[in-house]
Design a protein around this nucleic acid. Structure first.
Length: 555
RNA sequence: GUCCCCUUCGUCUAGUGGCCUAGGACUCCGGGUUUUCAUCCCGGCAACAGGGGUUCGAGUCCCCUAGGGGACGCCA
């Protein structure tokens, strides 16, 4: 049964040829595969530990991973994928690994890596191996594994599975333009594949700038299986000769992930559905190295209310938003578990431990779930109400009402306080949610509603491009925007006050924003925009253009 | 545009050919308990995208159409 993993794990895969007969199509439940009984077996922790000591040689051990790219704020989608990998591994007594995919030198940052690991830890998704905890398959940061990728890329080139490509960007841009004009799928034309191997070796040796591309068959179809969908075929025609090594010597995702998954002994890959169309490339790389293909499960993508892939413009996607606004990690995990999976007994409130004990990948669903916060609110309430009072108090303190947190607020409020009761009304929008807005809240301002909307939209764009999130950096960023838009600071800031604090008189704006954090500010800007009538697709296009035309002084 | 994936109440889902007069949960609406509010309890609205087949029998299997999504980067 190709592609299907039994209890014995990946060692039982047939040799991967890529040319196996098509699997019987239809849903996986008709394949007649015996159900793996993990859901009814005891956790077997002792056995799992014993297995771990066998290391490489023990093919029984299930290993999964989550592999975020440290190029931004911790994303709820990362937690979603991490949850399922975590539960899958633990339900079979295996290991769950965190790997940092920092192969994009321009965009990766260690600040982002730290934020992501902290947020995942807050979410309660701990890992057995990772950059911060070590493990015998390390290092777990791809930027520290470059020699490994280099060696494998060389091997691929030597065996003819990949080739150096010297095409300048201009040629590729031109090629793409022409193909798009002819309504063809943009695809590398194989120019450098046809070079004389000796010549191209010389050019590489002489130090000429180049990338390494995957050689892809011209005809036929690639067959593979997705464990929650069944057999899938994609014509090789559709598959581009993907760059495997960039001109800076760093690998792309496709090479690095495959090499690492193999070397780290990953047996099951649960990842977002967006990777489905990359499967042929990955399968090709596995085959060319003669490696067995792990089982793949492509989880449905979380969606906005309109069905599109969840995005920060339309939804709070930052994990820190959920933390700051006071969702409990266990409630968030419970909610995420409901996105594409269900308990055998249809229970909807359950712990991650209960989920792990009952986990059965056959209960994974395929439709893209809308990330709708109403149900999370209800779930979170259920968790809060069922807590012991002591526990509740502890959680409140963990959340925000504590000494450390008040220390950040004290300098802002002390000079503005005569009686201690004056304190609460000042910090209401910092400790609590700010009032719900409507258009009237903006009416008294100097700018009209249209201008308010434009200002808030542009502030949102400006802040999305803003790395540092402290008072001075925020002030500089927003001042420069006000200058570029040629609006007096006082008038410019008023709608921002309303958006952030719900009123025009409040604690210092940039301190407030620094305190609230990026995710909370973004969500308040978004709801303010909605109060101002919202931004239609057409309007968004125009605003984007207007923003791009601004001459913002970055100094 | 090309390829791939997906499609059950507004939302999350149950459904593995007869147990489906399609079940549960959230939201919403109505009622009850409660000094208010919230909780809690009870009730209600609400779905198999459309069309063909296969079958004694189709939400479930097959095909087509439509709609949605994703991919098509020296991003991951």
């Amino acid at each position: 049964m190709p592609g299907r993993v039994g209890p014995a794990g990946f060692a039982h895969h047939p040799p991967a040829t890529g040319l196996q007969p098509a699997l019987k199509s239809g849903p996986r439940r008709r394949w007649g595969v015996p159900q793996f009984q993990s859901s009814h077996a005891p956790r077997g922790t002792a056995r799992a530990v014993a297995r771990r000591h066998h290391g490489y040689t023990d093919s029984m051990s299930v290993r999964t991973r989550v592999a975020p790219s440290p190029t931004g704020d911790p994303h709820v989608g990362t937690a979603y994928v991490a949850l399922f990998n975590h539960v899958f591994a633990r339900s079979r007594g295996g290991q769950f690994i965190l790997r940092i995919e920092d192969t994009d030198q321009q965009r990766s940052s260690s600040a982002s890596e730290t934020a992501i690991t902290e947020a995942l830890r807050w979410a309660g998704l701990d890992w057995d191996e990772g950059p911060d905890v070590g493990g015998e398959f390390g290092p777990y940061r791809q930027s520290e594994r470059l020699a490994l990728y280099r060696r494998h890329a060389d091997e691929l080139v030597a065996s003819g599975g990949a080739f150096p490509c010297f095409c300048p960007r201009e040629r590729l841009d031109e090629l793409r333009r022409r193909q798009q004009a002819n309504r063809e799928t943009p695809r590398y034309d194989g120019h450098c594949r046809n070079l004389d191997p000796a010549e191209s070796r010389d050019r590489v040796v002489s130090g000429e700038t180049h990338v390494v591309r995957l050689d892809v068959p011209e005809t036929g179809v690639c067959q593979f299986s997705d464990e929650i969908r069944g057999a899938i075929e994609i014509p090789w025609q559709q598959v581009d000769m993907q760059i495997l090594v960039k001109s800076d010597g760093f690998p792309t995702y496709h090479l690095a992930a495959v090499v690492d998954d193999h070397l780290m002994g990953i047996t099951h890959i649960l990842r977002g559905e967006e990777w489905l169309s990359s499967m042929p490339k990955h399968r090709l790389i596995y085959d060319r190295f003669g490696w067995s293909l792990p089982s793949h499960y492509h989880l449905p993508l979380l969606r906005n209310a309109d069905g599109s892939k969840v995005s920060k413009r339309r939804n709070p996607t930052g994990l820190n938003y959920y933390r700051r606004i006071g969702y409990l990690p266990e409630a968030l995990r419970n909610y995420l578990a409901l996105m594409g999976w269900s308990m055998p007994d249809e229970r909807e409130i359950f712990s991650t431990e209960e989920m792990t004990a009952a986990f059965d990948s056959d209960r994974l669903t395929t439709g893209g779930p809308v990330f709708d916060l109403a149900k999370l609110d209800w779930l979170n309430g259920q968790y809060i109400r069922s807590m012991a009072t002591d526990e509740f108090m502890r959680r409140v303190a963990d959340w925000a009402i504590n000494r450390e947190n008040l220390a950040a607020l004290a300098p802002l409020v002390q000079q503005r306080t005569e009686r201690l009761v004056d304190l609460l009304p000042q910090v209401d929008y910092l400790l609590g949610d700010r009032a719900t807005l409507d258009e009237d809240d903006f009416a008294p301002l100097r700018l009209d509603a249209d201008d308010c909307l434009r200002v808030l939209d542009h502030i949102g764009r400006r802040l999305d491009a803003q790395d540092a999130w402290d008072r001075d950096a925020l002030q500089a960023a927003i001042r420069s925007l006000a200058d570029a838009m040629d609006i007096p600071t006082r008038d410019f800031l008023a709608p921002l006050f309303v958006a952030v604090a719900g009123r025009t008189v409040a604690l210092p704006l940039f301190d407030s924003m620094a305190y609230l954090g990026r995710d909370m500010v973004r969500s308040r800007l978004a709801s303010a925009l909605t109060a101002l009538g919202g931004v239609s697709k057409k309007k968004a296009k125009r605003l984007e253009r207007d923003y791009a035309d601004l001459q913002i002084d970055e100094t």
